[in-house]
Amino acid sequence: MTTSTPVPSGARTADEPFRFDTKIAVIVREDLAVWQKLNVTAFLASGIAHAHDDIMGTARYEDASGNDYLPLLREPVLCFAADAPALTRSHARALSRGVPTALYTAGMFAGGNDEENRAAVRAIPADALDLVGLAVHGPRAAIDKVVRGLRLHG
């Protein structure tokens, strides 16, 4: 008979995956062209990278040949698809929970730079934004509520 050593509360065993206390989710409107979905996802991920000082990995990557690579986000990013009403619902949920949120609106596709994009967002009230994408970061339970009912992009 074998016995196992008890694992302290909150600790994990070697065969358990690491589970972050926070979660990152990107939500992209499903009716966009593929290039738009990828573009929106990239922009939103860059916004999330600024959510907190510790959201980025702690070190750069290096391959066995000695090539140096930039650090990445420290935790997985879950990507969801949504129609326009579901995106609006998720936006309202994110705002009501006060979680760090990045957004991308349809008007930003016409902008040529960051200043024009910020002006396009600033001109429209939150409940009237034509959202094409959101990214959120925060406690797992709060983010789960923001994305409730959405399906993973696939």
Rank of each mutant, 00 (worst) to 15 (best):
L103M: 13
M108F: 08
R97E: 11
H91C: 04
R93F: 06
V99A: 07
F80S: 05
G111I: 00
G98D: 03
R97T: 13
A120D: 05
S90A: 14
T88I: 12
D83L: 00
R97K: 11
A94E: 05
R97M: 06
H91Y: 14
R97F: 07
R93E: 14
G112C: 01
D83S: 08
E116S: 02
A84D: 08
T105W: 12
A106L: 07
A106F: 10
S90D: 04
R93M: 04
C79R: 00
F109Y: 12
G107H: 11
A102D: 14
Y104T: 02
A82C: 02
V99P: 06
E116Q: 13
E75V: 15
R93W: 05
A92Q: 13
P85Q: 07
G112W: 01
A94D: 10
S96Q: 09
H91K: 07
A92R: 09
A94S: 11
A110M: 00
G111T: 01
T88D: 08
R89F: 03
A94K: 08
N113M: 02
Y104C: 03
L95W: 05
P85C: 06
P76H: 15
E115R: 02
L103Q: 14
L95G: 04
G107N: 06
M108Q: 12
A94N: 06
E75I: 15
G107K: 05
F80P: 02
P76R: 15
L95R: 15
